[in-house]
Design a protein around this nucleic acid. Structure first.
Lengths: 119, 119
DNA sequence: CAGCATCCAAGACGATACTG
DNA sequence: CAGTATCGTCTTGGATGCTG
């Protein structure tokens, strides 16, 4: 067993591509970012803003991921009933142009069945 | 059971983003595209050109995926021993600028441990 | 040389029920 | 309202051995 010493940093990425795909990849993250493009949304407003149904479990998880990555801020208002708002950070906004290009490229270069809902 | 009628096309994507991420997402596809940027490579040359070790199973699968997506061409020379060459198509080259932007963005915006090898 | 076939582990994702 | 907790399934990717 040659486990890592306590402070051996895991080298997760070997290229910016890996990091970027990790942050915006998956089934939901890009769509959530698009939903927050037009402004702040409450938790309960994000779900209907997405192009397909997401479970609460996934929505919570993806929002936490995006928050960790620094693309989204989470603001909790200590009221009853609770109110939590999400919005894009500058860093979050900074990736939107690239997302737009990806979206356009994807829309133009796919021959399979595709229904454009967003963007 | 309400199964689909025979010619009901599966609607796989609802947005260009989904299509694009499906094509260049995953652990390997972007790196393979980068490897082919400088010109044609044989199967056995791709493996060492990648920033980390890939298994044959994965390399074959990813190349087939990229071929299906139309980003890569596969040319078989009917010799013994066999020789197969891979190169980017125009469509493949058309996504490289976006990949570059993603790579740059990822490299700039990640605080975690990262060792830049490619690009 | 350029693969294919088989098996397996880990993670992504979904369904459902419950809660401060 | 904005989540947790638990469970189950499907997909991704790796290890290994075999072949025309």
């Amino acid at each position: 067993m040659d486990h890592n010493p306590p402070n051996a940093k895991k080298q997760k990425y070997i290229c910016g591509i890996d990091a970027a795909l990790d942050i915006i990849g998956g089934k939901w993250k890009a769509h959530i970012l698009y939903a927050l493009m037009d402004g702040t949304l409450r938790y309960s407003q994000i779900q209907p803003a997405l192009p397909r149904k997401i479970t609460q479990r996934m929505l919570t998880k993806e929002l936490r991921d995006l928050e960790k990555s620094g693309l989204v801020t989470r603001t909790v208002y200590p009221e009853i009933p609770p109110k939590v708002e999400y919005s894009l950070t500058d860093k979050g906004r900074s990736i939107m142009p690239i997302l737009d290009q990806l979206c356009t490229w994807g829309g133009e270069n796919i021959t399979e069945e595709i229904e454009i809902i967003c963007s």
